[in-house]
């Protein structure tokens, strides 16, 4: 009799407590998932999908215009197009230190940054710090007529001159 009573009345036992804990954990887990989802969607939202930035590819005249020793600064696209030994190459004009725009000084034959005084030679090598790296060489392509296309977003190995 006593055993049967206990079975029917279902007094609160260890199982009930663990059920309550389980439900509480499910609830907390749902809250955590919601917060994580909200955080992820906000982070995703903050990342722009379409950028109205100037194109990285641009026309840079004809290969005939760059005899050896010519240095042309393209201010809009932040690049130098340089006539080197036996061909043409292009340098990024963005200082490798903290991103200021460098200038070519023809009288000194050097590229210098106005912000913190870094200096480079016309091959982009660092002559004077604080710039930690050489100016990157960027891609130059020529079509059949010798018209040049430069892409500032494509970095090529240092010293790879486009042969005439």
């Amino acid at each position: 009799m006593r055993e049967a009573d206990e079975g029917m009345a279902m007094p609160p036992g260890p199982n009930d407590a663990s059920r309550r804990e389980f439900l509480a954990q499910v609830g907390l887990g749902a809250c955590a998932l919601t917060i994580a989802g909200a955080a992820l969607t906000v982070l995703d939202f903050m990342e722009p999908k379409v950028l109205f930035e100037p194109p990285t590819e641009f026309k840079a005249g004809n290969i005939q215009d760059f005899p050896e020793g010519t240095v042309r600064f393209d201010e809009e696209h932040r690049a130098y197009i340089i006539g080197g030994q036996g061909g043409v190459f292009a340098l990024s004009a963005v200082c490798t230190h903290l991103g200021c725009i460098t200038r070519y000084h023809a009288d000194e034959g050097a590229i210098a940054c106005p912000c913190h005084g870094s200096r480079f030679d016309v091959d982009g090598n660092v002559v004077h710090g604080p710039a930690p790296r050489a100016l990157p060489w960027i891609e130059v392509k020529a079509d059949a007529e010798g018209n040049l296309m430069v892409d500032t977003s494509v970095v090529i190995p240092h010293g790879k001159v486009l042969k005439v």
Binding site: L43, M46, E47, P48, L51, F52, E53
Partner: peptide, 13 residues
């Protein structure tokens, strides 16, 4: 830097 500027350069974004 990309998220702070909303792009690769200091722009209207």
């Amino acid at each position: 830097r990309f998220l702070l500027l909303g792009g690769n350069i200091v722009s209207e974004n």
